[in-house]
């Protein structure tokens, strides 16, 4: 394989992908950085004054920013916690011998294939609606007062919807990892007199560590930019209760047409994502053998 000729050919074949991704990263990002220093609003044409860090100080001191930062962390953390704990338990359950395992798998994985806008609208209207939603019907049947999820616990409701979409993914990956666990290891620990409980903590969980890392990495990438679910359910409200950084930047730039402010927000989002990413890449870089 490794003759000079094939090496040159290989470089050539790799370059379009590298150039495209490089362009995709560098060109818009440098434009965003540039805009973030300008007073630039699409509604006020012609003014592109350089205003230094004013956009940043505006964005970073805006109370909405802290609300959004906090919401983003809660959203990511909450969904990760639910999907990982739930995923581990569900994966262990699905790994047991049972009848109709294939069908159960299909049922469990289904929400992952539902587009975010559909999932969110279905939850919002058909389940969480305080008048006609299924939960309201159930509450009434039990003689309880219906709960207005999106008004009274908006962020928790969104976390619930998003977790429903991602639980299948975590489960599927953890199940796959579980199935690669050496049966003999489990039998050995049974022979060693370990209880199912200690088998879980000393053998199963360490074996799953790598898969859990991967789940955290992938989900974090997607969860940091949850958008559609918020757009179609609460529009970030009430107040800023469900505004995450992604939604805040969107609102700033495409609803208020403030390109400068939105860009500053975008850069803040990139920096935050990078801080998270560095951690995650460290973790996973060790785990990926190439």
């Amino acid at each position: 394989m490794a003759t000079t000729h094939s090496r040159a050919a290989a470089r050539l074949m790799l370059s379009p992908a590298v150039l495209l991704l490089l362009g995709w990263m560098i060109i818009p990002l440098s434009m965003t950085i540039y805009f973030s220093f300008l007073h630039y609003n699409l509604l006020i044409p012609g003014t592109h004054d350089f205003i230094g860090f004013a956009n940043y100080s505006y964005f970073l001191t805006d109370p909405a920013f802290f609300a959004a930062l906090f919401n983003t962390l809660l959203l990511v953390g909450g969904v990760l916690a639910i999907t990982i704990v739930g995923g581990v338990l569900l994966a262990i359950l699905l790994d047991q011998p049972m009848w109709g395992q294939g069908i159960v798998r299909i049922l469990v994985i289904a929400p992952f294939f539902v587009m975010p806008t559909v999932g969110a609208l279905v939850w919002k209207n058909m389940f969480m609606n305080p008048v006609n939603g299924l939960f309201a019907h159930m509450a009434k049947a039990l003689g309880l007062q219906p709960f207005d999820f999106l008004a009274q616990a908006p962020l928790a409701s969104i976390i619930g919807m998003v977790a429903w979409q991602w639980l299948p993914f975590a489960t599927l990956i953890l199940l796959t990892a579980l199935q690669s666990l050496d049966r003999e290891q489990l039998e050995a620990s049974e022979m060693d007199g370990a209880s199912p409980f200690s088998t879980f903590f000393y053998i199963t969980l360490p074996h799953l560590a790598r898969a859990i890392t991967v789940v955290v990495l992938i989900q974090t990438i997607f969860l940091l930019s949850v958008f559609a679910e918020i757009l179609v359910t609460t529009n970030g409200g009430p107040g800023y209760a469900t505004t995450n950084i992604t939604y805040l930047v969107y609102a700033q730039s495409l609803l208020q047409f403030d390109v400068g402010g939105g860009s500053a927000g975008g850069i803040v989002a990139v920096i935050l994502a990078n801080i998270v990413a560095i951690f995650l890449m460290r973790m996973i870089g060790k785990n990926l053998d190439i």
Binding site: S6, I27, I245, T246, V259, V270, A273, M281
Partner: peptide, 28 residues
């Protein structure tokens, strides 16, 4: 099939472009 010394780095870098939040480049 023709891995070079930097293949792993290139792969990791490609993965890292996935971490770029879309809002960061939405406006441009």
């Amino acid at each position: 099939f023709v891995p070079a010394k930097r293949t792993k780095d290139i792969l990791m870098w490609m993965l890292s472009t996935k971490m770029l939040p879309p809002v960061g480049v939405l406006i441009p």
